[in-house]
Design a protein around this nucleic acid. Structure first.
Length: 427
RNA sequence: GUGGCCUUGGUGUAAUGGCAGCACAAGGGCCUGUGGAGCCCUUAGUGGCGGUUCGAAUCCGCUAGGCCACCCCA
């Protein structure tokens, strides 16, 4: 009856161990810090939402909705989806909690896990983390740039180098239909030169033919009409202003006419931040304006702009560029004990140490002092508090300097202050 | 979803059809109230299922997971 099956994490999902979490926490720290600086408020939404929220919001013809959602049926018969992205949930929350009546723009952010059923690869997981920022209620170009600048600064603060912003405008409901029509007309004329996927896209989502990487398609695309030439006056001006702001902020960008994002709801500005000068760059962050999404979810027409960044990808690049070293948890003091009374006393003095903001290590399951000193040494503790039966009776503990071996008696009540003093002296 | 490569104790590796071995890590001991070294002992592995063979970590099939490219995206 030896169970041969080995339990393991589900495909494309992983455990985050202490060492991993140091990286995640570093990212979250910087994100929170910049969120505060830029005046964004944090919210958390449920991990599951009504399937229809994404069908409507994210868009029925997107890969995400078509084939990547984890969908579950509850006992009550509702269909819920593990969230594959944040934006529709933000829009839902915006209406559900009457944020329409908050002073605008409403600036919100969050981070947490998302789920997409995909074939896993490095930098592409089925459960992954993103941080996400949204601005509701501003149609101004500066708001797009506020988002881009914020993401740019967060990535820079994390130490990442050689990044570039790819940016494009995909127009709005005024001008995009004209462009789409003329693009489709052109692509039809060259249909026999397209890959099978693109033949399909031609019907379902022709804009995405633009990002196909098949060589035969690339040659077709090279001569295709470009959105930039079809932008209406308003969209054109919007893009120009965005680019001017980017210039003024000295953010390096590449105006990429083939950048089309996979989600249906974008209008005007779309952007991705990616590593520059590498063979197969994957976007670290991406987003843009989505003026038409909110009225699909709620009743009101609210312009919005936002972006999301993939934390695992950021961490991978941090490791590659070697810009963050998890600081080895250094402990201030190790408490070694001998005998039951001393074990209990060890637990009792914890609160006193906490008061002095000293965080100790200890190992109550060990009985031998030698073993405990060995552990203290391995942990790199500069000082050890030694508590034996004798010390408990005397009301004093021995404090040992691990470097010099010098020990002195300290009253229990003074332990916190004394260690603090010693630590300070050491520096 | 398509194609390709990979998988040996916790980690890193050796064995290419013939006794699964080494290093590190871990646990215990030498050492009953004083660490760093050393020595000794212990735990623990061929991802899973099947096939070929006298004999399989090794060859074959399926499966699971990982990785790479496509697809897509963060």
């Amino acid at each position: 009856m030896s169970p041969k099956i080995k339990f393991q994490t589900p495909t494309g999902m992983k455990d985050l161990l202490p060492e991993d979490l140091e990286f995640y926490q570093r990212v979250f720290e910087v994100v929170d810090d910049f969120a505060q600086l830029f005046g964004f408020n944090k919210i958390q939404t449920p991990i599951v939402e009504d399937v229809q929220l994404f069908e409507k919001g994210t868009g029925g013809s997107t890969d995400i909705v078509e084939k990547q959602m984890y969908i579950l049926k509850t006992k009550g018969g509702e269909y819920l989806a593990l969230r594959p992205e944040f934006t529709p949930a933000f829009a839902r929350a915006y209406f559900e909690h009457g944020m329409v009546n908050w002073p605008h723009p409403v600036k919100l952010y969050t981070f947490g896990p998302l789920f997409r059923y995909e074939r896993p690869q490095a930098g592409r997981l089925r459960q992954f983390y993103q941080f996400n920022f949204e601005i509701f209620g501003s149609k101004k170009p500066i708001s797009d740039v506020e988002i881009i600048y914020l993401f740019w600064e967060i990535l820079k603060e994390l130490g990442l180098k050689n990044l570039i912003v790819h940016i494009n405008s995909i127009g709005d409901k005024q001008c995009r239909p004209y462009y789409k029509k003329s693009l489709v007309r052109y692509l039809r004329s060259r249909e026999r030169d397209l890959c099978p996927d693109c033949k399909r896209r031609l019907k379902t989502n022709p804009l995405r033919v633009l990002d196909c990487k098949q060589e035969k398609c690339r040659t077709v695309i090279a001569q295709a009409p470009q959105m930039l030439d079809y932008l209406c006056g308003e969209c054109k001006q919007h893009l120009e202003r965005v680019l001017e702001y980017l210039d003024a902020l000295e953010i390096p960008y590449f105006l990429n006419p083939y950048l089309v994002r996979g989600l249906d709801y974008y209008t005007k500005t779309v952007f991705e931040i990616m590593p520059d000068n590498v063979p197969n760059p994957t976007a670290l962050a991406g987003g843009g304006r989505y003026d038409d999404l909110l009225k699909l979810i709620g009743k009101r027409d609210v312009p919005a702009t936002g972006a999301a960044a993939g934390i695992e990808r950021i961490i991978a690049l941090m490791k590659e560029q070697n810009v963050f070293k998890p600081s080895k948890k250094k402990i201030d003091v190790f408490v070694a004990q001998l005998g039951d009374k001393a074990k209990v006393k060890t637990l009792k003095i914890l609160k006193d140490l906490k008061k002095a903001k000293i965080y100790p290590a200890f190992s109550l399951s060990k009985d031998s002092l030698g073993d405990q000193l060995k552990i203290a040494d391995k942990l790199g503790a500069p000082f050890v508090i030694i508590l034996g039966e004798e010390e408990v009776l005397k009301g004093k503990a021995l404090v040992r300097n691990m470097k010099t071996g010098v020990q002195k008696e300290v009253k229990f009540e003074k332990l916190g202050q004394e260690i603090k003093k010693l630590l300070k002296k050491k520096k």
